[in-house]
Amino acid sequence: MSKSERPSQLFRNLNAKIASIPMIFTALVIFVGGTVWTVFYSFTNSKLLPRLHFVGLDQYYRLWATPRWLISIENLLIYGVLSLVFSLVIGFLLAALLDQKIRFEDTFRTIFLYPFALSFIVTGLVWQWLLNPEFGVQAVVRSLGWTSFSFNPLYDSSIVIYGILIAALWQGTGLIMCLMLAGLRGIDEDIWKAARVDGIPTWKTYLFIIIPMMRPVFITTLVIVASNIVRVYDLVVAQTSGGPGIASEVPAKYVYDYMFFAQNLGQGFAASTMMLLSVIIVIVPWAYLEFGGKKRV
């Protein structure tokens, strides 16, 4: 195209360059600069204020020796794996149900998606109330006569992360459903017809033909869910504040607390660098598959 072949001069396209200044600033100063700065200072022993006293990997050793960080990582792994599996499975199942040419599709979709419009704070507070042991689900089930029923995730440190998972799934599966539905709608109608002529039952068509065809949608969704998992913060703050004790701590909260409450910037920087690392582990293989590898048809 002709537009990309202009001679490169500083004042050529000046207006476009001016218009791009915010983007260039964001990309270079905030995203690249900020990241480099944080990683750089994670090797210092900054406390209340950042200062350039290098201590090598000390912050990291300390990080991985802190029980609260270890619990955060463990929580993140449990929460991450389960939320990946459940949101993909539930999201896909709901999308497949909605894709059966049903009536009131818009109504159902609106209902499944509305939690996604709510903030994590609102989500966390609602589920905090629903799971309240004195008045919530547990109390209601017990009042129905099943007096030994026990479901008290928010005050039981061994299952608290599942309480958070329930809330997160309620909030987020609608989005996955929408992405999956868009993927299902993108599949050539003729494929379904061919499968019907071949006499392949619906569930087998989904399992052996449609789902393999939706691989790109699944991968994209996976990346979205995964990078949201690493960020989980507001939900925990609102629902449990990390409690009981430190049972529901997550890395993002660790970072925030060490930076702004514990006045231990170095720990915060080291922890956030670890978060960055985990995102890279998720993103790089995906980016390679999506953009680096051979083009899919």
């Binding site: 003729d190 494929i191 061919a194 002529v197 052996f208 393999p212």
Partner: peptide, 21 residues
């Protein structure tokens, strides 16, 4: 009858081959 029981075979404009097989 269901398509599979009609004794027909069908060829589509978009080929409709199962891409992963």
């Amino acid at each position: 009858e269901e398509p599979k029981d009609r004794g027909i075979g069908m060829v589509f404009q978009s080929y409709a081959l199962y891409p992963q097989m």
